[in-house]
């Protein structure tokens, strides 16, 4: 066993937990809070301008297939940009009473399956060196995955 591995073994379980919790604090303060706060501002802006109503009536029929109100589309659109942001939008809509508890369970896996894809196109596809002609297929698979997951969750919960 290497020296590094030996010291790793000696760590107390409490130290390991605290180390992880510290990571959680870092993510919470540097990602969750700013993302959720921004999402609440966007929702407020969309509500005041009436854009949210418009969005929900346009996407209502599509989202209805997976048992969601039209507002669910706002969550999915923000997911493409950022997973954390989409969670912010979700909780914002929940606290406005526009999404119900069950809607959240349906949306949760979908947010991640199609989440942060714009960012990950660079960080995954770019690094691996995926040929450009496969990009649309890969984006399509993410969106399809999200819709299939919502369909299944709609049956399960």
């Amino acid at each position: 066993m290497s020296k590094a591995a030996a010291t790793e073994q000696k760590k107390m379980i409490t130290d390991i937990f605290v180390e992880g919790a510290r990571k959680g604090w870092a993510i919470g303060t540097s990602s969750t809070i700013p993302n959720v706060m921004m999402a609440f501002i966007i929702i407020k802006a969309l509500t005041i301008t009436g854009a949210l109503d418009m969005l929900s009536s346009v996407f209502g029929p599509v989202m209805g297939v997976v048992g969601l109100p039209g507002e669910g589309a706002a969550v999915l659109m923000s997911a493409i940009m950022s997973m954390g942001g989409a969670v912010g939008v979700t909780v914002g809509l929940l606290s406005e009473g526009l999404l119900q508890a069950r809607d959240i369970a349906i949306l949760a896996p979908a947010i991640y399956l199609m989440g942060s894809t714009i960012q990950y196109a660079g960080r995954i596809l770019g690094v691996i060196g995926t040929e450009a002609r496969y990009y649309p297929v890969l984006f399509g698979i993410c969106i399809l995955n999200a819709f299939m997951a919502m369909f299944v969750m709609n049956i399960l919960v």
């Binding site: 959680g24 993510i27 969670v87 929940l94 119900q100 508890a101 949306l107």
Partner: peptide, 13 residues
């Protein structure tokens, strides 16, 4: 780091 939170929430009702 973010999604797990969703399963601890309650809605308006």
């Amino acid at each position: 780091s973010s999604g797990a939170i969703l399963f601890t929430l309650t809605d308006a009702a």
